[in-house]
């Protein structure tokens, strides 16, 4: 999984049978209601292996709820979520889904505050999850090397012994991205990574994510248009729980329906 996969920008015109086999993630007709209110309404979405996808949409469009469904936090009322052509994620719990290879960065950064940056990454590092093995295990050479590599990608070598609680907001966001990398998931879900960041930090984050995308498929949710532009990937616009438009940023921002949704509010 550490080898680079080609980034694909194909339009989503496949047959259903083909989709379930070649797509990395396939949502089909997913509906989630909260007391009758449909946060997701018959949403279908397809992510190719190696792809980075930006999901945009106004507040309350259902972006976070979509991630909740994919990661097993929320069970949909209807629809299917197929990962890697085989597992139906709607039947599995969070820990199981995580071990299948889906990592998630939350909208609100949640790093482990009483642990150091290094320990945060070590916890996230793929592999060791069995409680009894962890009782006796020291970090291996391979694990230490991987930690060093990740610390350099997220540009946090100098802070590796700092406690999570002492990090700035931007540093927490990067640590979270590092923790995602450490999990080495097949698919990374990144929810609003640049919220509250300065312009320079935003630019750095876009670079980090492009670097991450060399070896991982990524779905990133974001409001910040300059950031989405810096990513330079295919965009999906969500609105009221369904897909409104899909294509390059220029294409979707020329779409009159998208303009209405964004400007009509």
């Amino acid at each position: 999984m550490t080898t680079a996969q080609p980034v694909s920008h194909q339009p989503t015109a496949h047959t259903t049978a083909h989709r379930t086999t070649s797509a990395l993630l396939y949502l089909s007709g997913v509906t989630v209601s909260f007391d009758g209110f449909k946060a997701l309404n018959n949403l279908s979405l397809l992510i190719e292996p190696g792809e980075m996808r930006a999901i945009i949409g106004p507040n309350g469009a259902g972006k976070t709820t979509m991630m909740d469904v994919i990661t097993g936090k929320t069970r949909p009322d209807e629809g299917q979520v197929v990962f890697d052509g085989q597992a139906d994620l709607t039947k599995l719990d969070e820990a199981h889904i995580a071990t299948l290879g889906i990592g998630r960065k939350f909208q609100k950064p949640t790093v482990f505050e009483s642990h150091t940056v290094r320990d945060n990454l070590l916890l996230a590092l793929a592999g060791m999850r069995s409680w009894y093995k962890l009782l006796g295990a020291a970090p291996t050479k391979a694990e230490n090397d991987r930690l060093a590599e990740i610390l350099s990608i997220i540009r946090m070598e100098a802070q590796q012994h700092m406690l999570g609680a002492r990090l700035s907001h931007g540093q927490k966001q990067w640590l979270e991205i590092g923790m995602l990398l450490a999990q080495n998931p097949k698919l990374m879900l990144v929810d609003e990574p640049v919220a509250g960041m300065t312009d320079v930090e935003t630019e750095t984050t876009a670079q980090v994510l492009r670097e991450v995308n060399k070896s991982h498929s990524v779905v990133v949710v974001e409001h910040d248009m300059s950031f989405v532009r810096a990513l330079g990937v295919k965009v999906t616009v969500l609105h009221e729980g369904s897909m409104l438009a899909e294509g390059s940023l220029d294409q979707v921002s020329a779409d009159p329906r998208v303009v209405e949704v964004y400007l009509g509010r």
Partner: peptide
């Protein structure tokens, strides 16, 4: 031990640990 590191992480942010597997 690393178990202890994980335990304290569960104490502080249980659902985060679940999403880590």
């Amino acid at each position: 031990s690393r178990f202890g590191t994980a335990l304290i992480a569960v104490r502080d942010a249980e659902s985060r640990m679940r999403f880590l597997g």
